[in-house]
Computed example of a mutant assay.
Amino acid sequence: MGKDIIALMIQEYERFTRSERKIADYVLEHQEETQYVSITDLSAQCGVAVSTVSLFCRKLKLAGFNDFKLELARAALPARAAFSEPGSEITEGDSAAAVMGKVLSAVQDALNNAYHMLSEQEIIRAADLLRRAGQVVCLGQGNHSVVALAAWAQFSTTSPKFKTIQDSHMQTVVLSTLAEGDAVLYFSYSGATHELLEAVEVIRNRGGKLILVTRYPNSPASAYADAVLLCGPNEQPFQFGSTSALIAQLYVVEALLSEFIRWDPEEAEQNRRSVGKALTQKCV
């Protein structure tokens, strides 16, 4: 792309429809904030349909909304470097100790943010869905599949009904055999991937329950979830799954696990003793 996205929007402004001008006006006024919102959030802020945002992006010769956010972030790089708080970003001249301190600060901020975003009522609702389910499948795509695996590893020590599947085709197989009331614990930062929306359709058709761990309350999948556990920092488009986002999700896993155990501590303790006894045989 020759011109940056801001210059291109200004150049094409007179050719936009009235609805598209609403999007352009909002983005030009909230360039920094737009980098962190979902397509549904932007459509709501501008009072237009999600499809209008998609058409707006394609009119700018972009593949879609994520591509638009990438270009927006690229255009903002000089401004971010000029106006960011001194010492907030890791620089080439930092010592290893300075890098360690800045990473620690970022992680602490992510955990504090996750704590304030997470709803007590949603945690209680999610734990109840887990308790009532005949089986629980922990799922995620990309980096978030690691969190799903970690969630399964934690919950499986308290109950045999938890499982996880890494292969996308086998995920579809497992979801298509859910029983009514079975639960799916799904990790997705955006809540708007094709894999997740396809999974949502299968889960609904089977009468399953969806517990969604995501950053955006108005994401497409959130509308169909039975419980939405919000967490996650504002990721820049170039981060593609930051460690801070994964740490925030792991915090949610630990909070949900603790609430789940609180429902029936005796069963959880019995299972954990059994697991602990078996695992001691693997130690030298």
Rank of each mutant, 00 (worst) to 15 (best):
A199V: 06
S244Y: 09
L230K: 00
E198N: 10
P217V: 08
L229C: 08
D226R: 10
D167K: 02
S188R: 01
H169C: 13
D226G: 13
V202N: 02
L210A: 00
M170Y: 15
E201Q: 12
I211W: 00
E235R: 08
F187N: 00
L196S: 09
E198G: 09
S222W: 04
A221N: 05
N218C: 08
H169T: 14
G181H: 06
R215D: 03
Y224E: 09
P217T: 10
T172L: 13
F162W: 10
E201F: 03
N205S: 14
H194V: 15
I211E: 01
L175Q: 03
G232A: 12
A199L: 02
F238T: 15
S244G: 09
I165E: 04
E180G: 11
A225W: 00
E198T: 01
K163H: 13
K209G: 05
E235P: 07
G207L: 10
R206Y: 08
Q171F: 04
K163R: 15
Y224Q: 10
I211H: 04
P233T: 15
G207R: 09
D167N: 15
V202Y: 05
E198C: 00
G232C: 11
T177Y: 12
K161D: 07
G241E: 01
T243W: 03
G241Y: 04
A248L: 08
N234F: 13
L197F: 04
K161F: 07
Q171L: 00
G232Y: 04
I203T: 01
L178G: 02
D182P: 09
A183D: 02
I203P: 00
Q236H: 13
T158C: 13
T172N: 10
C231N: 08
S188T: 07
I203L: 07
P217S: 13
P220S: 00
L212T: 03
Q166P: 06
S190H: 01
A192P: 03
L230G: 05
L246R: 13
F162N: 04
G181K: 09
G191N: 07
S159V: 11
L197T: 03
L210P: 05
S242W: 05
I211A: 04
G241I: 02
T243A: 15
V173A: 09
T158L: 14
P220F: 00
T158I: 15
T172I: 14
A199E: 07
I203V: 11
D226L: 12
Q236I: 12
T193G: 06
P220R: 07
F162C: 08
P160Y: 12
G208L: 01
D226I: 11
S242Q: 06
T158N: 10
F238V: 14
D182G: 08
S190W: 01
G208S: 06
V200A: 01
A248M: 04
S242M: 03
L230P: 05
P237F: 09
T214C: 07
T214Q: 01
D167F: 02
H194D: 15
S159G: 12
Y186H: 11
K209L: 09
V200L: 04
R204A: 10
V228G: 06
V202G: 01
R206C: 12
A179M: 14
V200R: 00
K161T: 06
G181W: 07
S168M: 14
E198H: 05
D226H: 15
L196G: 05
S219Q: 07
D226V: 12
T193M: 03
A183R: 01
K163I: 13
V213R: 00
E180V: 15
H169M: 13
I203M: 00
D167W: 04
